[in-house]
């Protein structure tokens, strides 16, 4: 059938799936996002062959960045081998033919869902976040027009009230992921649902960070060497999660850990959420 339709296997898709006009539109939005760190730039999100909420925003940002010389890594909750990561990596291998890798150090572009790799990123890397909800105020400001005004005037008291309510009710700030940050001293932004363990990695990172929200049609960015402050109070400073355990596979004490149940009796173990980091520490050769 395909030969009847004169389809050539090699050029069924545009390079990296999106058409050139869409890429140009997204590229203009990315440049604005870099110029105004933390500000959410609206863009014309396209229908992607993936349901909204599964990374269509990150997918479109990556598609607009990718070139033939790139090497792509895709992670989902730190892991290279989960469904979302595997399907997105295969998608780009299919529609662009770019090389892929699981090694953090080898990648030029890292698309991620909800983690930042443990290994420090470099100047030559770009990290692309899949972001379900880019608006940190959406938890309590449902109207876009109101949220936009709050951003315009930089009146972020309402977010501090939210944090204060946690402290008064629970004794601590109970947000363990998607912890709000102020970028470059101006815009309140959501770092995507990364654990707050990863927030310090965004502060003055050497790599450019781009955030794509497909359903919400927004792109924002944190350029390298940009001040990223996690909100806190003088008497309740921002802290990250601490683990009692270390990774049961590689013994790492500095990584973010996932808890796994081992049997019906409730035995548990902890392993690194970043599978590539764990594998490298165990000295295994990962697939590249």
């Amino acid at each position: 059938m395909e030969t009847d339709l004169a389809f050539d296997d090699d050029d069924v898709y545009s390079f990296a799936y999106l058409d050139e006009m869409t890429k140009r539109m997204i590229r203009r939005a990315i440049l604005k996002a870099v110029a105004v760190p933390g500000y959410q730039v609206p863009f014309g999100s396209r229908e992607m062959p993936l349901p909204p909420g599964w990374g269509t925003g990150g997918l479109q940002v990556t598609a607009s960045l990718l070139g033939r010389d790139d090497r792509l890594k895709v992670i989902d909750q730190g892991a290279d081998d989960t469904t979302n990561a595997v399907s997105i990596r295969r998608f780009f291998a299919e529609v662009s033919g770019v090389a892929t890798t699981e090694r953090t150090g080898e990648a030029t572009i890292i698309q991620t869902r909800h983690r930042i790799p443990e290994r420090a990123l470099t100047e030559d890397q770009i990290i692309v976040f899949q972001q379900p909800q880019p608006e940190p105020l959406r938890r309590f400001i449902t109207e876009e027009a109101v949220a936009r005004k709050i951003h315009a005037f930089a009146r972020y008291g309402v977010m501090y009230v939210r944090l204060y309510e946690d402290i008064s009710r629970l004794g601590h700030i109970a947000m363990s992921s998607d912890y709000p940050v102020v970028v470059n001293g101006r815009y309140l932004a959501s770092p995507s649902p990364i654990p707050k363990f990863d927030n310090p990695k965004l502060h003055r990172s050497r790599a450019l960070a781009l955030f794509g929200a497909g359903r919400e049609r927004r792109i924002h960015a944190i350029p390298p060497f940009t001040e990223v402050k996690s909100l806190d109070f003088a008497d309740y400073p921002f802290t990250v999660q601490r683990f009692e355990a270390c990774c049961s596979a590689c013994g790492a004490q500095d990584s973010y850990l996932d808890e796994i149940l081992l049997d019906d009796g409730g035995r548990r173990a902890f392993v690194c959420s970043d599978t590539a980091y764990c594998a490298e520490r165990r000295g295994e050769r990962t697939e590249s």
Binding site: E20, K23, L31, V34, A35, S64, G67, I126, L208, P224
Partner: peptide
């Protein structure tokens, strides 16, 4: 090569603006 030349140019612009 409009597709790849403009991609390469864009990445250079992105690098210039982010540094």
């Amino acid at each position: 090569d409009p597709v790849h030349d403009s991609q390469s140019a864009f990445r250079r612009l992105l690098k210039a603006l982010s540094r």
